[in-house]
């Protein structure tokens, strides 16, 4: 316990200062004000891995770590679709995950948004649309509001994607 506390003291706050990662900080501040406008300053995201290679998950994980710390913009990931405002889907939708994805979408309370993250979620990417194990891209299964390009998209691209989703006209 003392060893951990010592390490904590030694490292200090490492969330990136403004100068070192301009894009992320600037977009983050925009995100914060947009989230405030659309969701009273609290955006809950439910992540569904519909068959991804986990590359996108690593980037999402990075967005949550101490460097990027997406939580400070009022965005957090939840354990249940019932708590969520936004559904973030990664990977092509595999046949086994199709029902689960539909059920997750149905379980979410309105107003709800859907973001397809990564090239696989957009057009099945490297896995291919005619793959025997794949039911289709995310937009074939549930209505998608925005897409985030990249393989995998960086945390900055992720924030940009969330931002453009929120900036779309409501309805």
């Amino acid at each position: 316990m003392l060893r951990i506390l010592h390490q904590i003291m030694k490292v200090g706050t490492i969330t990136e200062p403004l100068a070192r990662n301009q894009d992320f900080e600037v977009l983050g501040e925009q995100l914060k004000s947009t989230v405030k406008k659309r969701f009273q300053g609290s955006l809950a995201i439910r992540l569904v891995d519909a068959g991804s290679c986990n590359g996108c998950e690593l980037e999402i994980h990075a967005a949550n770590n101490a460097y990027y710390d997406i939580e400070r913009f009022g965005v957090h990931f939840t354990a249940s679709p019932r708590f969520a405002d936004m559904l973030l889907v990664t990977g092509p939708v595999s046949i086994n995950m199709k029902t689960a994805l539909e059920m997750t979408y149905d379980a979410m309370p309105a107003p709800k948004l859907v973001v397809a993250m990564g090239d696989c979620a957009i057009n099945c990417g490297i896995f291919g649309q005619d793959n025997y194990a794949i039911a289709g891209s995310v937009s074939d299964i549930i209505p998608v509001d925005t897409i985030i390009h990249g393989c995998p998209p960086s945390p900055t691209a992720l924030i940009q994607g969330i931002l453009s989703t929120l900036n779309q006209p409501e309805g």
Partner: peptide
């Protein structure tokens, strides 16, 4: 303590 900034004291209210 996790070397992050966190969402701030008001976040639970916003949630």
């Amino acid at each position: 303590l996790q070397n992050r900034r966190g969402a701030g004291i008001m976040q639970p209210w916003r949630d």
